[in-house]
């Protein structure tokens, strides 16, 4: 009974939802979106891989590879805070839905003077 005014109001007002894939919502500033690595800044220290709770990052120093499994990532942002050079960042944009499983492999060239970082076990 008490709902009728609300129901009528809703009936004659605009849709409260939006057709998602066609018109995505703008994320808030500071939302934890897609994770990106700036290969210029990365020194392959492996801190991100050690702190990641879902273990979706792999750093291969020998091959110079930084690997990321976006579908295992929980977007907690722990790696972003742990990265000593600030090369990791989270965009304010979500990773779009895809049909196939992806794996991000980045080739990182570590400049020689920076390669002295020890990786602890």
């Amino acid at each position: 009974m008490f709902m009728i005014p609300v129901v009528l109001k809703n009936l004659f007002s605009r849709c409260a939802t939006r057709p998602y894939p066609q018109s995505p919502r703008q994320l808030f500033v500071g939302s934890r979106g897609q994770l990106v690595n700036d290969v210029e800044k990365c020194i392959l220290c492996g801190t991100c891989a050690r702190t990641c709770p879902s273990q979706c990052l792999t750093v291969r120093r020998k091959e110079g590879l930084w690997e990321y499994e976006p579908f295992a990532c929980v977007f907690c942002g722990v790696c972003v805070e742990a990265c000593p050079t600030g090369s990791l960042a989270q965009l304010s944009q979500w990773r779009p839905a895809v049909r196939e499983r992806e794996r991000v492999v980045l080739k990182v060239e570590v400049k020689s003077q920076e390669s002295g970082v020890k990786s602890e076990k």
Binding site: L27, V29, G30, S31, R32, F75, C76, G77, E81, Q90
Partner: peptide, 21 residues
């Protein structure tokens, strides 16, 4: 939640010794 903590449900704001945001 999303605007203040970054995520809608799993806020991930706690650390040992305080908060992250």
């Amino acid at each position: 939640n999303e605007a203040t903590a970054g995520n809608r449900v799993i806020l991930s704001v706690n650390v040992i010794g305080g908060v992250r945001r």
